[in-house]
Write a protein that binds this DNA or RNA. Structure first.
Lengths: 208, 208
DNA sequence: GCTCATTCGCGTACGTGTACGCATGTCGTC
DNA sequence: GACGACATGCGTACACGTACGCGAATGAGC
């Protein structure tokens, strides 16, 4: 019976992404495997490749869907400092809680739908707060770098056991600067650095 | 002839690290392979594991050696702002130019000899500039996060071809905030945010 | 020199992502 | 229907990192 082939159309890009997303949301990213997905879908491993360019391509898609659900701040956007702080913190939490997201952000610039929507929204806010387009872009770049950088460091520290010998409690020392509180304080330094320009814009608005 | 075994002591941790380091310095990190190293050393792949815990362990060691050669600023450390800026930029360049380094910094906190030496040196400078130990640690954390984050983004953008369709020249937009110039400007925002505390310390020094 | 514990090189084997190509299913055109 | 173009499922095969355990070389204590 060589004809033990599954009916036509059993698998589709959408099905693959759904199953993968379910696993990642359940925190099973580390054990996400092409062979595993295939067996859950009841097809042969190589069949997935008709619908997904590669495992990384698949993960990109999964992460886009997860990001779409969680990036948007609840804070009103007329308080730009608060809005930006919340948006940054949401991305940080996302990176720390989802290893898959980390993987994606580290492999290439993220230009998925949700990531672009998020960038557009933040640029919008920054444009209203800062004197010109160029300042807004610089600010965005700085904030984004800091956020991703912090997320990476915090995530790499989580689930990491310090080497057997820990002279000077070095692990504690490192731990001390990758707490969420630390994130907020560092971000404040950044935003403080940006604020003078925002004040300038506010002043300019009064004297047109 | 089952006795086609290589003489005793042909391979050592040092040899393995040397060969691997040579390859990485030659920009051949992507094709760095246990089997490849073994064949260059003339031994069987599994022999390496007597001297190296894992491939990642090996890469940690290689990256430590490369970092040791390049982290130290040339600027005199009595101009703390300039010293810190150069130190940060050196780490950024290292991360961008050496994918292996990126790999290590993303996998776990880096506590190798060179990394600790670098941290100690920077903490020294920050302690002299800022009012107390706590401020220094916060500053270090913020600077480090920003630097690693920027390095990650810049590296991921390098060697990346934007998707076939590039609406609104989005690639350019992204490119605009991952230039070395941008790094410096963002860092300045951060240091500006820190400076008030430094000024406070300077004032305090005059009125003991 | 003998014995025994330790170190070292290696053969085998497993699970991973995925390139390649065959065979089968589906659909558009006559 | 018949036939050709294409889409899809899958079997085979490769290179990768590395767990496990065997046998040989080395060194320590007598």
């Amino acid at each position: 019976m060589p004809g033990s082939r599954v009916p036509w159309g059993t698998v589709s890009r959408e099905r693959v992404i759904q199953v993968a997303t379910k696993r990642v949301r359940a925190g099973r990213y580390e054990e996400l495997t092409i062979r595993g997905l295939a067996s859950e879908l009841g097809v042969s491993p190589m069949s997935l490749y008709r619908h997904v360019r590669s495992k990384d391509d698949l993960i990109d898609e999964v992460v886009d869907r997860l990001l779409a659900r969680c990036w948007r701040p609840r804070t009103a956007s007329d308080d730009w400092l608060a809005w930006v702080a919340e948006a940054a913190d949401r991305l940080r939490r996302f990176l720390v809680s989802q290893p898959a997201a980390l993987h994606v952000y580290l492999r290439h610039p993220v230009v998925s739908r949700a990531a672009i929507a998020r960038m557009d929204a933040m640029m919008e806010v920054l444009r209203r707060a800062l004197p010109d387009e160029d300042s807004a872009r610089r600010a965005y770049g700085a904030i984004h770098s800091y956020t991703v950088g912090f997320g990476v460091l915090q995530a790499s520290r989580a689930g990491w056991a310090p080497p057997e010998t820990d002279p000077d409690g070095l692990a504690q020392q490192l731990a001390a600067y990758t707490t969420p509180r630390q994130f907020g304080e560092g971000l404040r330094y950044l935003l403080d650095g940006l604020s003078p320009q925002a004040l300038f814009k506010a002043a300019e608005a009064r004297v047109p």
